[in-house]
Structure formats: C-alpha cells, structure tokens
C-alpha cells in the first residue's frame, strides 16, 4: 500500500514535470494506466524494475519490421497511436512517442503488455504468435520511438 502511494506520487510528479513539454494525458486515461501498472507490479513482483538490455541494430530492424506488420494498424506507423484502425476503436492505442506515457510503466511491464495484452482492451497478447526474442525486438523498437522535446 505504501509503495503504491509512493509510486502514484512519483508518477504525478513526473506528469506535472513533463506537462509543459508534451501532450498531457487525459486524467481518466491516466487512472486506467495506473490500474494496469498496479496489476503488473503485483504480477511481476521484484522483476518489475529489472532493466532491459539495449537492442542491437539487427534487433531494431527486426522489431521495426514486426511493428509495421502487427502493431502499426492501431499504434500507427510512427507509433503515435494514430493507426488507421485506431479511429474506430473504443479506447485509444498507446502513443509511444509521448515521453510521459513512456515512463508510467517499467520496461518489464511494457514487455509484459506485449506478451499478455491488456484484458478488456483491443490490445491483445502476442506471446503465442511471437517468440520471446521477437517480443524483445518489438519492445526494443517501441522504446526507440519516444520523442524527447528539449
């Protein structure tokens, strides 16, 4: 409970820090993301904060190819959440270019979302389709999409 409060506080601080620089996140969306984060913290336990190794060039290339094939429909070819499928969907696909959104989940959490999907949303789990290696490649590419505005 304590860590929960703490982490929410950290996120709020982060959000307010970034707000002037990038697109603010809709409060309702933010609270939905917080729920997902809490669930993943519980699910992953201490693994939640483990770092993920940087992707190699070949991994990035592989990741880009898979991203265009499997993810771009919803998340957009540039990863900004503006895929042509997205217009009609109930929720809004995550915008990977937004630095605020990118910091709400840990790296392991984002990997887990690629593997398992987000229940109740159009984001499905890809662990049956992609090998673990490919999941890592896709994540490597997704991580590289963040646009930092300085």
């Amino acid at each position: 409970m304590k860590s929960l409060l703490l982490s929410s506080g950290v996120v709020f601080l982060l959000v307010s820090c970034y707000q002037q620089q990038s697109q603010p996140i809709d409060p309702q969306r933010l609270s939905h993301m917080m729920e997902i984060r809490q669930r993943l913290e519980k699910e992953l336990g201490e693994r939640y904060d483990h770092p993920v190794a940087a992707a190699s060039d070949s991994q990035l290339q592989r990741g880009q190819k898979l991203f265009i094939q499997l993810c771009a429909g919803c998340h957009g070819p540039r990863g900004d959440g503006k895929g042509h499928v997205a217009e009609g969907l109930a929720g809004h696909p995550s915008d990977f270019t937004n630095p605020v959104a990118a910091t709400i989940y840990s790296e392991q959490a984002r990997l887990q979302i690629i593997r398992k999907g987000v229940p109740g949303t159009p984001m499905m789990g890809w662990e049956n389709v992609l090998t673990e290696e490919d999941v890592l490649a896709v994540y490597g590419y997704v991580r590289s999409l963040v646009v930092s505005k300085k």
Partner: peptide, 17 residues
C-alpha cells in the same frame, strides 16, 4: 481472425458504426 493487425479490427469498428 483475432490476431489480424489491420483490416479485421478496422472492419469490426466499421460494423460498430
């Protein structure tokens, strides 16, 4: 098919409309 990344969910959202 459910793992379809583009036309199928696009069609289903169109059906919703």
């Amino acid at each position: 098919f459910t793992y379809c990344p583009d036309v199928c969910p696009l069609t289903l959202s169109n059906w919703k409309r």
